[in-house]
């Protein structure tokens, strides 16, 4: 029988994959992908807890997380396009110009 802990462990593994991506990548687009991975991991945990406690609140939070992810992508991709037009690259090391 699959219990709540199974889902929480899978969610933790996916979340740590996303966190490693955020720490490791230097490209802004890849950082966005890693953020999506982390948001999805949290959604799995919410849906699993909602199912095992027979409560709808977890699913509601997952809906709002999806809405926030959609607006984050809309604004973030606009900023990425403007940055790419200005600098010709999305690498964080190229974009850092305030080094003392």
């Amino acid at each position: 029988m699959i219990g709540l802990s199974h889902y929480l462990i899978v969610s933790a593994i996916i979340f740590s994959i996303g966190l490693v991506g955020v720490l490791r990548r230097r490209n802004l687009l890849m950082l966005f992908f890693a953020t999506e991975v982390m948001l999805n991991a949290v959604n799995i945990a919410f849906a699993a807890i909602s199912h095992y406690y027979n409560d709808l609140t977890g699913q509601m939070f997952a809906f709002f997380i999806i809405a926030i992810a959609a607006s984050e992508v809309a604004v973030g991709l606009g900023i990425l396009i403007v940055l790419f037009k200005k600098h010709g690259s999305l690498d964080l090391d190229d974009l850092a110009n305030m080094r003392g």
Partner: peptide, 15 residues
């Protein structure tokens, strides 16, 4: 919030 994000996306990318 989604409406604000849509307007921001249009203005940022469409300029």
């Amino acid at each position: 919030m989604l409406l604000v994000a849509m307007i921001a996306g249009i203005i940022l990318a469409g300029k």
